[in-house]
Nucleic acid binder design. Structure first.
Lengths: 223, 223
DNA sequence: TGTGAGGAACTTGTATACATGCTAATATAC
DNA sequence: GTATATTAGCATGTATACAAGTTCCTCACA
């Protein structure tokens, strides 16, 4: 749907560039921008930059303040709740209804990694691993609307993660264990168990996110 | 999120205008357009029209073919399945989890209308009634991501409805009855029953849509 | 009659000039 | 010193000129 594969137009490049900067919080939530700033960074003229801005605004990552500037969309605790509500709705559903579509060889590969890291402190590429595992599980949904929604959720999730800093190690090990539980249920083709494990995993994950965010930012409810 | 209240900019007017035309199938699925055509209809210059086009493409209603033109997004049977899958996922969820947020006085108002029309042939404003009822039920979801997704689904649903022509009367009466069942379950605060009734309603609705579409278009699988 | 080269008439992509509105600093009046 | 009016600078909004690619008709030619 919104698959801009490898379009080489300046507009697309600008879109990808800005989106990446926002995702990685190089453009922080609530940061004030302007067309001029983005033009300078990209070296393009106004037109393609403006079109990228329009798309990103439609996507909810930016907000154009008429005649005043551009602001990167902020985060509230309410956003976190909404994000995890969507995930709790979609991800267990995917497992429960379409688990049988999974490539179990692929799942087994992940399972082994998770078991191997449950008691280690290795956290290289942890986020990447996390994202890829969830992406694998969600890919069984052959529903463009749900996949696009999940993609947006994923972007927000990444921003959240980057902003709240690294996970504490204990949470990382627990995540490995929870992922292992999900993967193992899949390997048994026990989709109901997998779905339940996913639900629990997402609950813990949300609690951890909220806690981390509270600690790192005090009790300011808005980024 | 994508709430363009009553923005008076040309860009927004163009967006609303084109979106409405697509929704109402005045720009039919797979119809070929061009910036020039839209400019003429609106009397605006390229810039605001282009920005509107960009937004609509991001929203999936349009596809820009580089240097070739603009095509209105088409429909496949797969789209219908996807739309109803999303609805079956979201709407019963809303009732089950947040039914208690409903304004029962409002629901009662609808319930009376549904009962009154179950055996009549009055179908004036039927679609409007249908949309409003579902919108009321979904409004308990205070989740921007889900609401925006539903809004997109709603747009697609409208296009589908317009394209497949009027419901047959019997389906309209059955819809009234199914809506009444849902509403009455709500009035009892029996959210589980309401959710189940909604699930069934959506199943029937999907079957009817598919059947109507097959009849009206033969077995060409694409619009 | 068939075929292929050329080009006119379209399309969108990009750059830029100008219009308009907001903000904040400054000057001025008291 | 304080308050208010003015103004310069910067923001986005819009229109338009130009660039570059695609389509398809035309017309010469075998």
């Amino acid at each position: 749907m919104a698959s801009h594969h490898k379009s080489t137009s300046m507009q697309s490049k600008a879109y990808e560039f800005i989106k990446r900067k926002i995702t990685m919080c190089e453009y922080a939530p609530n940061q004030l921008l302007s067309e001029a700033v983005l033009q300078e960074e990209l070296g393009f003229s106004r037109t393609p930059v403006r079109e990228a801005i329009g798309r990103l605004e439609q996507e909810g990552l930016l907000k154009v303040l008429p005649k005043r500037g551009i602001v990167v969309s902020g985060f509230t605790f309410s956003d976190i709740s909404m994000i995890f509500e969507v995930r709790r709705l979609i991800e267990p559903y995917a497992l429960r209804h379409y688990g049988s579509r999974l490539d179990l060889a692929e799942v087994k590969r992940y399972s082994e990694i998770f078991h191997a890291h449950m008691s280690s402190n290795e956290c290289t590429e942890f986020y990447h691993l996390d994202d890829q595992f969830h992406a694998l599980l969600i890919s069984v949904l052959e529903n463009d609307y749900l996949l696009e929604l999940y993609s947006r959720i994923q972007t927000q999730n990444t921003r959240l993660r980057v902003m709240s800093g690294q996970f504490i190690d204990s949470r990382m090990r627990r995540t490995m264990a929870e992922h292992a539980e999900i993967a193992d249920a899949c390997l048994e083709s026990n989709w109901e168990r997998a779905a339940i494990a996913m639900t629990k995993h997402l609950q813990y994950s949300e609690e951890s996110s909220l806690a981390t965010l509270l600690k790192s930012r005090g009790n300011t409810s808005i980024f």
